[in-house]
Amino acid sequence: MLILECPYCGVKAEETELSPGHEAHLKRFGPGSSDEDFESYMFARKNPKGVHFERWRHSYGCGKWFLAARCTATLEVFGTYPAQTSEPPPDIVAKIKARRPEWEGYK
């Protein structure tokens, strides 16, 4: 079972209390963008085996969106952080590098 800690209310919640929101840190494209940019934003998603950054919503709690870094192969959680963060916090990146030396880095 995947357990994530909400960075807003501090509750450690099982995945049944959360709603996934797919990949985090995407560059958003909207009105006025090219068809190719909008298509890649809407439909092209990474699905890596290994370290992944995701959006989650604490649906049955505070209701807020947050981001999580985890390994998709082992379900190991490296940390969670607020959704307004533009890139992973340095402490989470350091934790990933320490536990997963094969990780090639963010982006």
Rank of each mutant, 00 (worst) to 15 (best):
H22M: 14
H22K: 15
H22F: 03
E23M: 04
A24H: 15
H25K: 03
L26S: 07
L26D: 10
F29R: 02
F29M: 01
P31Y: 09
S34G: 09
S34R: 03
D35T: 03
F38R: 14
E39P: 02
Y41A: 00
F43E: 02
F43S: 12
A44K: 11
A44T: 09
R45T: 01
R45V: 13
K46P: 00
P48L: 10
G50S: 14
V51Q: 10
H52A: 14
E54I: 08
E54F: 14
R55H: 15
W56C: 01
W56K: 08
S59P: 00
S59R: 14
S59H: 06
C62Q: 04
K64V: 02
F66M: 08
F66R: 03
A69V: 13
R70C: 12
T72V: 09
T72H: 11
T74V: 03
L75I: 12
E76G: 12
F78T: 04
T80P: 09
T80C: 00
P82Q: 00
P82F: 06
T85R: 01
T85A: 14
S86E: 12
E87H: 08
P89S: 07
P90H: 06
I92A: 03
P101I: 08
E102I: 06
E102Q: 04
W103T: 05
W103A: 03
E104L: 00
G105Q: 13
G105Y: 11
